[in-house]
Design a protein around this nucleic acid. Structure first.
Length: 257
DNA sequence: ATGCCGTGGAAACCACGA
């Protein structure tokens, strides 16, 4: 079972790239972030025609998350991260597919930091950590994936010294990620590639992709029951070089059946 | 070492992203 995550930065503007990538790499399950489309403007037909069913939680202009599957039924569990009824951002959706709980998340950017946006990021992180603990306690296999907007360690940024005061790399942010993982989650990329330079995002400016000036901010966290089933993982970094690409590349894992 | 580019939506600029 191949599961992928892809921050598309606009699902309609990105549709040709998304469809080409689906066709070429054929993931079984796909988590999308930054749809940047209201609920009624999701390109459901094009995605169905590509062989995928979909659930999504849209929002006008910003955010928005979706889960795609070509394995049949997507049993939606929730489309809101618990813990704050006043949070109106579409940043989380969760479903059960083939017995695996898939949480698709778009963690807030948090810049500028410090400030209210950074506070919101840390609060969102706390809510995610509480919910993640409940998922672990349930004992079911869980994949928590998406754009975490965190470089977990120094090797996850091309020039970490430039990011120390940024919301994606500040000590509070890295500590929050560390606390989450310490519950018992496995960072899939780092389990298979503990020390390699692997990026999932390249800025649009200054030929960042051409210079490989990237960041690793899109992650897969696996519950203990799934860790032993992890057989492969990677980044489809070539997609970042396509015309009209997102600034993120797709990331994927392969789980043994 | 700075949204320099890109997207969406509204209004011919602005908010937002990382």
């Amino acid at each position: 079972m191949k599961i992928a995550t892809y921050n598309v930065n606009g699902v309609n503007g990105r549709l040709p790239v998304l469809l080409r990538w689906l066709n070429e790499t054929a993931p079984d399950v796909v988590c999308l972030q930054e749809l940047k489309a209201p609920q009624e403007n999701f390109p459901e037909k094009a995605i169905n025609d590509a062989g995928y069913s979909a659930i999504w939680h849209g929002q006008k202009s910003w955010n928005g998350v979706a889960i795609l599957s070509r394995l049949g039924e997507i049993k939606e569990v929730r489309r809101v991260l618990p813990g704050d009824p006043d949070d109106e951002h579409s940043r989380y959706i969760e479903a059960i597919i083939n017995g695996i709980t898939v949480g698709c998340l778009y963690l807030p950017n948090g810049n500028p930091a410090p400030g209210p946006k950074f506070d919101y990021k840390l609060r969102w992180f706390e809510r995610l950590t509480i919910h993640a603990a409940e998922l672990l306690a349930s004992g079911t296999p869980v994949v928590l994936t998406g754009d975490y907007n965190v470089m977990p360690t120094e090797i996850d940024a091309y020039k970490p010294e430039r990011w120390v005061n940024d919301a994606l790399f500040r000590p509070e942010t890295r500590a929050a990620f560390k606390t989450l993982v310490a519950q018992g989650w496995t960072d899939a990329i780092r389990k298979l590639y503990p020390t390699e330079i692997i990026y999932t995002f390249w800025d649009y400016f200054r030929d960042a992709y051409g210079r490989n000036a990237g960041l690793r901010i899109d992650h897969f966290l696996l519950s203990p029951g799934l860790e032993s089933r992890l057989v492969a993982a990677g980044v489809d970094r070539n997609v970042r070089g396509w015309e009209k690409s997102s600034d993120h590349g797709p990331v994927w894992i392969q789980l043994a059946d």
